[in-house]
Design a protein around this nucleic acid. Sequence first.
RNA 1: GGCGACGUGGCCAAGCGGUUAAGGCGGAGGUCUGCAAAACCUCUAUUCGGCGGUUCGAAUCCGCCCGUCGCCUCCA
Length: 455
Amino acid sequence: MIQLYNSLTRSKEDFVPLGDEVKMYVCGVTVYDDSHLGHALSSIIFDVLTRYLEYRDFKVRKVQNFTDVDDKIINRAAADDVPWEEITERYIESFYESIDGLNVRRANVEPRVTEDMPEIIALIQRLVDGGSAYEMNGSVYYRVRNKPDYGKLSGQNIDEMLGASGGDVESGKEDPADFALWKAVKPDEPKWDSPFGPGRPGWHIECSAMAFKHLGEQIDIHCGGLDLIFPHHENEIAQSESASGRTPFSSVWMHNGMLRIANGQEMSKSLGNAFNVKAALEEFSSDSIRLWILQSHYRTNPLLDKELIGAAERSMRRIRSAVEAENVESDDSLDASAYKRRFVEAMDDDLNTPQALAAIFDLCRKMNRARTDGKDVSGAAELVRELTGVLGFTLEAPPQKNEGLSDDDINALVAQRKEARADKRWGDADAVRDQLDAAGISISDAGDETTWSRD
RNA sequence: GGCGACGUGGCCAAGCGGUUAAGGCGGAGGUCUGCAAAACCUCUAUUCGGCGGUUCGAAUCCGCCCGUCGCCUCCA
């Protein structure tokens, strides 16, 4: 039985989907800039969740949206002096490059706010008709105090929150706690026609509308970063449940932790210290980035430190070499079933990827040992591929950097060294090895055969 | 002020009431090797921020203290 931690109940619960298909909604990105490693973290974690659910024979329908109407997009367009549509196209494209580079599988449906506008407007209308929302000067606001359990996700109390934020500035609302579902048009901003007048959707309504449209009014899992709990997810719950009259909107709420920067500062776009995914992929393999992330539990706040990603790269080499080493055919084969059990047990327990990885590392060591004992480890190697696949690893060697030496150059030098070794001119042989080493090529002798690889 | 998270070996990080406190990186020694690399073996926390308490028994539960951090405003 898979157990997942539910932010709503603050406890681990047995996972039982409502229907035949797991309905999963992931709060996607606002496309106004390149993706950073915080997005990578979130994407990888929920990618692993879908892969694991499928591994455990669930059918999953995953919806992940693009927010392509937003203040930040408008600001970015103004700063770059281009139409806002150009900004969203550019960064949707960029998002795909990043996510593909990280071997994250795409969601089944990837709706955009601009494409689901009729459903968004209809949902707002429904809230107005039901008395949960009201029009005011061309805008529409959600009436927070009409929902007695408002605050149940974040544990926030409306009055205490208002006391801290120093009162609200948006005029024309019945209550400062109310939030905008529809924003009346302002000069030079994108706008759509609606029964309430021209304008654009507020921040939270899109996710409810898209979840309703593509999944239904009650879903199984809703995912996003911890930072979205308030106000975004709190408001989504309020408006969704008010509209549908059904509780809960989502059975499970899953939230990933926030990246910590090595110097102790939290990741924040406003600090301008985001670590670009595409830049990271030039320096590190997707496997090493993934391992670095999955070696911490998804609800903790992993440390972003290049040293740690580098260490993960070395760890990946251990797994790859254990899987790729030549197998000895034998009747005596290694039984790896206990490791599979350990993996499943760990993953069942709220996606305990650090423990799942520990099982894989232990298995790799066991394989290397069994191999020297003359055992057949092909079945075990297959299992490692299977389990690492569930975690989204490719097991591909990192992209090789061109250090100025061509393969022919290297082969010539290796041949030269082989000759020197045959003559027992060890000094000459080692000089060649040093030369290759300086160029980032490491070599390894196995009997007469010498193999080389780029670092 | 309100809501919440966390402090485990040199570093990262599991464990959340009871066998020898996972795993990775790093380090030391060894086997193998002409020497290396890789791999394997051994070692690298009698101890889990501090002080009390509950318990037959606590890293794990409770209280206090110290220290980091997140959210309450746009953010995965």
